[in-house]
Design a protein around this nucleic acid. Structure first.
Lengths: 343, 343
DNA sequence: CTGTTAGCGCGTTCAG
DNA sequence: CTGAACGCGCTAACAG
């Protein structure tokens, strides 16, 4: 029980013998108020360290200076990087960030968004779960005049701005790099068909092969469900044990690439001499394993910053109509796992 | 501009021809109110989906149902795991979690905590930065009657409950395991001297050697500053190139262990035959590299859950006096990198 | 230039 | 059992 009662405008007014509203206006240097009064009030407030009761201010203004963020999974290098960027930008503009996760379960996502909607947040940043399609719970935000920005895992069903990585070109560049290095039979371990990012990357892969006039085989494309290390291992086994095995693999994610490399190393394939590998995401681990893994950097921090900027802009303009798409450039990071030419 | 104005108690009262206060009481099934009226009001509220204005409620009750969490670094496997646990428990109890990071910079930590203190949070979970010592900014919470719980990186200077990992015994167990496996000359790559966890682990290391009557050498203990992969590499090089090189290394963190292993592999040491390695934290990477890395699991999720439970308990009891310390058990995870006996 | 007044939406007396 | 009235702390419209 230590509740030190805080100073209010009323207290200051009483003490200084002026009215509450004058104090209020003086504090924000309203042009109507005499310089003298402003000085007086400000000094008093300062010395008695007056702190406005944000709860009251927010109630009055009907906003909270909080923004919400929901990701499928928090314990994930890419998403935590995005969050880091979002926090940085939000704080810079005087907002706090509320974080929640859906675990890729629609029910959890709905719960999390409801919890945030009920007046605790002025807007929402969301990367949707694999199960989210129509998104009524997200529309509820818009209906209440609270802007939403989607990032990374998005759906075109919802009329909100979107910040995404240029998956298509990222994948194209990765595969094209393999081709340039001299790999000719390139397989792809991809993600679920109903997840947009995965499909974009797969399209980029196909286009690169096509443009180079290289062999394409349906059985060279494997579909992950969980994007796990084990799937990388298992599919690589399938690929290498099947007929007409590839001599390079483009993996949907570094983690999958890791599984792929595990299988290959266990079976005495030399990477990249026998088979080239490239991942996607440029996780920290890609530069500390051996051989170091080539990958595609997604600039997660920047994604967090850009999404937040967009959202705050909308909040300030009471705008829930925008729905442009911002595509962030990827960056190819070449390391040993794909570099035939350096050997 | 889509502001769908929300239903208020007043609206319901007017519509039903009863007073605001009756509506208010009916909604929370106050015993004074007739069952009939309760039913009437509830049904109306339900069908017109009335949602109380939390901003107003919070203002009235002077609390927010938000809790804050500050960690040194968000993009970090252990911390993001803790956060995940904190979110889970907070949501379960109807609270939202506000997240921020200090980047291990005191100034940033102060900024983040101030931002949260100003009425946007009912309590704080914090893992302090390396630069934090006295913690005036944290005392400010207590002075305002808002409880604080420290976790993982803590300081005894502050009179708050603390949730920590049993670093001493975790380290003791890890080193003891190496001893049991037959390693005799065990080095330790530790963290900064002014960081408690690092010192606890180092003490555990020393005690294990002492209890086993094994050789101890000052030059077998190396001190990291950044806890980076590169430091692991460099110190291992120093250790192995120096005279009387060790035959096992206990690393402060899996990342450091990774660097250590990189050096060893590059220089054709066989792990664990020539040299045993054990890490700490049990990051995901430890089970996907080869050889798989033995490590000490810290149960980060559980730490998040426990810390949050403690904090919410205090919030509910208006308690800012407790200062017990909860120590979470670690768990030794034995993998290939330290298992001489299985070869 | 400043004070008075009137709410914001809700909870909580205090009267009936 | 119910309603009227007040106030949380702050802002803003309206007077002077």
């Amino acid at each position: 029980m230590n509740e030190k009662k805080k100073l209010t405008l009323k207290d200051i007014g009483k003490e200084l013998g002026i009215s509450v509203s004058t104090v209020s206006r003086a504090l924000k240097e309203h042009p109507d108020i005499a310089q003298e009064t402003i000085k007086l009030v400000k000094e008093y407030a300062e010395s008695h360290n007056y702190v406005p009761n944000l709860l009251a201010v927010n109630f009055r203004k009907n906003r909270t200076f909080n923004i919400g963020l929901i990701v499928p999974e928090l314990v994930h290098h890419f998403f935590s990087t995005v969050i880091s960027g979002a926090i940085s930008e939000a704080n810079k503009q005087g907002y706090n960030l509320m974080v929640s996760q859906s675990n890729d379960i629609l029910k959890d996502e709905v719960l999390a968004s409801r919890a945030m909607l009920n007046s605790s947040v002025d807007g929402l940043l969301i990367s949707i779960s694999n199960e989210t399609h129509e998104g009524k719970h997200i529309m509820e935000f818009l209906e209440e005049g609270k802007p939403v920005v989607q990032f990374d895992k998005i759906t075109d069903e919802l009329p909100t701005p979107k910040v995404i990585v240029d998956d298509f070109n990222g994948a194209y560049g990765a595969v094209n790099h393999l081709i340039t290095e001299g790999f000719t039979k390139i397989a792809h371990i991809r993600g679920r068909r109903d997840v947009k990012n995965a499909s974009e990357r797969c399209e980029g892969y196909k286009k690169a092969l096509e443009d180079a006039g290289l062999e394409q085989q349906g059985y060279w494309v494997k579909v992950c469900v969980k994007i796990s290390e084990q799937e990388g291992y298992d599919f690589t086994k399938e690929l290498m044990e099947g007929e007409n095995p590839p001599n390079a693999i483009f993996c949907i994610t570094d983690l999958v690439a890791l599984g792929s490399m595990r299988y290959l190393k266990e079976n005495n394939y030399n990477i990249p001499k026998d088979i080239g590998i490239i991942g996607f995401s440029n996780w920290m681990l890609s530069k500390v394993i051996s051989p170091r893994l080539s990958s595609v950097e997604q600039h997660g921090f920047q994604m967090g910053v850009e999404s937040t900027k967009l959202l705050l802009e909308m909040i300030k303009n009471h705008d829930v109509e925008s729905n442009q798409t911002v595509e962030l450039k990827t960056e190819l990071i070449v390391r040993e796992s794909s570099q035939l030419s350096q050997l």
